[in-house]
Design a protein around this nucleic acid. Structure first.
Length: 194
DNA sequence: TACTCGATCGGA
DNA sequence: CCGATCGAGTAA
């Protein structure tokens, strides 16, 4: 059974490290009728602090970005291009504006498609990433091997200038690479076939 | 109050 | 390649 991630995790590490750590975790959505859907996170981006020119909080605390200054563990949802909701997890300690953009879950590529598929909108902006809000993160023990994780510059942030646009803070992996191959054996204890 | 421009997507 | 679509941010 996947367990909800503890909020302390979201405040402990730098945003790029945290973004990597979210790969392979479940994004769990509880629908209004109580049905629980789990989606494996496969692609994320890190936005790290007021100095990061790609980060919305680069120009300081405003009505929209104030949620990014909260302690890690709440959602930051905003409207992009007038029609797409973007889902971010606020990270870091209080007053350090940072977040991880959820760009893709297994079977769904693109941040706008993720929110559309999960019915996530700005009503969740500022809500806790906890079961009570109906949208949270969970861990079933899967560890994505470091070697499978690829890092590239973030998408659509050329406005940030060459230095910040080039930061390799987009992380993703191909979940099909996790499949156990013939001739190899998953290293787990117990239930060894006779 | 006017004006600009997106952390995107789907269709020519 | 281009248009959709709208609210935050900025300047005035």
């Amino acid at each position: 059974m996947p367990e909800p991630l503890a909020p302390e995790l979201f405040r402990s590490r730098s945003t790029p490290a945290l973004a990597r750590a979210l790969l392979g975790k479940w994004l769990v959505r509880v629908s209004p009728d109580g049905v629980v859907h789990r989606h494996r996170i496969v692609e994320v981006e890190a936005y790290h602090g007021g100095a990061d020119r790609a980060c919305h909080a680069n120009r300081g605390k405003t009505a929209r970005t104030s949620v990014m200054f909260e302690p890690g563990g709440v959602w930051y949802v905003y409207l992009c291009y007038g029609m797409h909701e973007m889902l971010n997890l606020v990270t870091g300690p209080a007053e350090f504006p940072a977040a991880v953009l959820i760009r893709g879950v297994e079977g769904i590529s693109g941040p706008g498609r993720v929110t559309k598929a999960l019915a996530v909108g700005r009503a969740l902006n500022g809500a806790a990433a906890a079961p009570a809000s109906g949208l949270y993160l969970a861990d079933d023990g899967l560890r994505v091997p470091r070697a499978l994780i690829r890092a590239t510059p973030r998408i659509g942030v050329d406005y940030a200038g060459p230095v910040w646009a080039a930061k390799p803070w987009r992380f993703f992996y191909d979940p099909s690479e996790l499949v156990v191959r013939p001739g190899r054996r998953r290293a787990r204890s117990g239930n060894t076939p006779a």
